[in-house]
């Protein structure tokens, strides 16, 4: 099915629901996964891969493609599920996540079709994205680069080195998205390192900023598609999200950070996602 055919049948919310369901299944595997921060960015990934990014699953190396980097690489399960749903590799392969012999490592690796560069150590993605955007500019390509950051990740100083470079090089084909779920491994990000006013921080670094509901894929898609929002400036979308979105028994809790779902909780999660679907 082409992306056009798929979107005639399904809404972005339908796609996001399927991706959430894969994420939940992968986190019920033997090694578990970074469930909470994966679920918080599913709608952003859905908007990007099913509406915004110019990528071709049959020609993933197309030099004119848009590029995406999951700087918060621990949300690998969400990226893998998105790439599989988008057609980069078979959905069946997701069942191998974390298992010996699979290529689906706990953080994104280049061996997985659709993954541009490996990430996982926080604070690397934005500099890499600057490099992509610069190289594309030198090559005269109109393609864009999108980088998804965690809000806890913003505590890494290298993020701000890259933020300075992107603004000083006027990289307006570079778009960052901050998954602002407000929680990191041990607690609320703002209790550990206050970042507000976050939008103001980015603005003062020379970026164009938008702050929106991070669980509305249609809205996210419209905004991201319209970037650059201000000529000569890189763009950052602060997506207000909920860690563990979709699972009431985990949502908004730091303990959702890394979870191995027991069979009982796996069943609860599946049923919660189904309930959410039926309410939609």
């Amino acid at each position: 099915m082409t992306i056009t055919q798929l979107l005639e049948r399904d809404t972005l919310n339908d796609v996001a629901a399927r991706i959430r369901s894969h994420v939940v299944d992968m986190c019920a595997g033997p090694e578990g996964g970074h469930l909470g921060g994966a679920l918080s960015c599913v709608d952003v990934l859905t908007a990007l891969y099913f509406s915004v990014l110019n990528v071709d699953t049959h020609w993933p190396d197309d030099p004119d493609r848009d590029r995406f980097l999951l700087s918060k690489g621990h949300a690998a399960v969400a990226l893998y599920a998105t790439l599989a749903e988008r057609g980069f590799f078979p959905v069946d392969e997701l069942a191998g996540f974390g298992r010996a012999g699979s290529r689906l490592m706990g953080h994104p690796v280049r061996a997985v079709p659709g993954v541009e560069l490996p990430t996982g150590s926080l604070g690397h993605g934005l500099a890499l994205g600057c490099g992509f955007a610069l190289a594309n500019r030198y090559a005269g390509r109109a393609s864009r680069t999108f980088v998804l950051l965690g809000d806890g990740e913003l505590q890494e100083g290298s993020v701000w080195e890259a933020a300075i470079a992107a603004a000083s090089q006027r990289l307006d084909r570079l778009v960052a998205v901050v998954d602002r779920n407000g929680l990191q491994l041990t607690g609320p990000t703002d209790a550990i390192a206050p970042m507000e006013p976050l939008a103001e921080r980015w603005r003062s670094f020379g970026w164009a900023v938008r702050e929106v509901d991070g669980h509305d894929p249609e809205l996210l898609a419209d905004l991201l598609d319209a970037a650059p929002w201000e000529p000569g400036k890189p763009s950052v979308l602060i997506a207000r999200t909920v860690k563990g979105q979709g699972l009431p028994f985990l949502a908004g809790r730091a303990s959702s950070h890394y979870v191995t779902l027991s069979p009982r909780n796996h069943a609860r999660a599946i049923s919660a996602l189904r309930d959410a679907e039926s309410l939609r």
């Binding site: 690397h124 890499l128 490099g131 610069l134 030198y138 100083g157 080195e161 890259a162």
Partner: peptide, 26 residues
């Protein structure tokens, strides 16, 4: 000319940007 860029005093960023450019054929 435009093949030279001073990216400022930020060595981690320097290496990341270089990697990103190299991944795109530079």
């Amino acid at each position: 000319g435009d093949q030279y860029l001073n990216l400022g005093i930020a060595e981690q960023n320097l290496m990341g940007v270089a990697a990103g450019m190299a991944a795109c054929g530079r």
